[in-house]
Amino acid sequence: MNITSNFDSGNIKVIACESPLDIQLEINKDNQSTFFQWFHFRLETTPFVEHCLHINNLKESAYPEGWDDYQAVASYDRQTWFRVPTRYDNGTLIIDFEPECSQVFFAYFAPYSYERHLDLIYWAQSHAICDAENLGTTLDGRDMTVLRIGEPSDDKKAIWITARQHPGETMAEWFVEGLLHKLLDDEDPHAAKLLSKAVFYIVPNMNPDGSVRGHLRTNAAGVNLNREWATPSMDQSPEVYLVLNKMREVGLDMYLDIHGDEALPYNFVAGGEGIPSYDARLEDLENTFKDALLTITPEFQDEFGYDKDAPGEANLTVASCAVGEEFKALAYTVEMPFKDNANLPDIDYGWSDRRSYQFGQDTLAAIIAVVDKLR
């Protein structure tokens, strides 16, 4: 047997791997950070033999409650990721699995590779209405790219979408891939209507360094980007610094920041009710958008989510709150589950890359309900 994570977004530490029924593993922490939860590794072994993998010390992980009722994903071809029998017992995640091939990959959620990220960027820029702009580089020297879709004009709204500030939340980039495929489809009526009224600025991956390093939540310096929006810097959080400056340059009328939640098995949004400038106009925009999304897809719900901030008590270091306050704009954090959607469970795949992709397309369609009211 052999276990390795020496590849893009790989993360695992092998403690013992001598018996198929007693494989002992741990997850490495994000660099210069105490966060850990993301895992991604390959097992090479004898097929059609029962294996028992133990991932230990998870009481100290970033979100221990995320392991309850969680099922790991596995793949033979790195294309189709399916759920495997998984249980959580006193700080240890136990995966019971009989592989059908000699090599099998396991991950916390369906990975979204850096190569696929680059393919998405350059596929998008091949469309005449899309321009890819490099804003600068990350601490590890990777490009920070924003896609501008549509031709700017004074009468068009500026709609911003960012994803994967937390690199282990790969469902966020699957969401953006679906959204981009719909927005760049020249036969799609939702896209045509939106692009007649708005220009989109989309950052498919806010944290490419953390993504490649196999981090859950931080960049190369161990910084949580979604707590940097009040005072970003090129030394610690160039990703936020560069994107925020671009927002200020071109303007912003609506903002969606796409994430995944470890514990809650639902799709939901977190709004700006706690920002100082929250008013009846923003409340109406939030409700209009939510009502549209509820109508479009049963994958979305508004019963379960985060507790609402009290008036004036929003955390203005968080992207959606900081941006909503600065631009006096509709700004939502969109959350998807790592587990399954409890309202529409799927025993084989749970919440998945494919469902995230479709949710991105449905969310784009919901923007039509608010685009005329953004100013």
Rank of each mutant, 00 (worst) to 15 (best):
R116E: 11
T137M: 01
Q103G: 06
G141W: 13
E98R: 14
C130I: 10
E133M: 13
I161K: 04
A124L: 05
E115W: 03
C130F: 07
P167I: 01
F105C: 09
T137K: 03
C130W: 08
S126Y: 00
A172H: 07
H117P: 00
G168E: 11
A132G: 07
V104H: 10
I159C: 07
A163E: 11
Y122V: 04
S113E: 06
D140Y: 03
P111G: 09
E115R: 08
T137G: 00
D119F: 01
D155E: 14
G141T: 12
D154K: 09
R116G: 03
T162D: 07
V146Y: 00
W123V: 08
R148L: 01
Y108H: 10
G136A: 03
R142L: 13
D154E: 14
D154G: 07
M144A: 02
E133L: 14
Q165K: 02
L139W: 10
P152Y: 02
V104R: 09
T137E: 11
A172Q: 09
S102I: 13
S102K: 14
F105H: 14
V104T: 15
R148W: 04
A110I: 04
Q103P: 05
T137P: 00
M171S: 15
Y122H: 14
S126P: 01
P111S: 05
L120P: 04
R148E: 07
R164D: 07
E151F: 06
R142H: 13
D154N: 10
E173P: 07
T137Y: 09
R116T: 03
H166R: 04
Q103H: 12
K156W: 02
D143P: 10
D143T: 05
F105L: 13
Y122M: 02
A128Q: 14
P111W: 05
W123K: 09
A128K: 14
T137L: 08
E133K: 14
T170K: 10
R164C: 10
D140L: 14
I121M: 12
E173C: 13
D119M: 01
D155T: 14
P99G: 10
Q125W: 11
H117G: 00
D154H: 06
C130V: 12
T145A: 00
P167M: 00
L118T: 00
V104A: 07
A132Y: 05
D131L: 13
S113C: 05
F105P: 10
Y112V: 08
A124W: 05
H117F: 10
E173T: 15
A124K: 05
W123L: 06
H166M: 03
D143H: 11
Q165A: 08
D131P: 03
A158F: 02
D140W: 01
M171G: 15
L139Y: 06
Q165Y: 11
T138F: 06
E133G: 03
L147R: 05
G136H: 04
I161L: 15
H127A: 12
H117C: 05
A158T: 08
S102M: 13
G168W: 10
R164L: 06
R116Y: 04
E115G: 04
V104P: 13
Y114K: 01
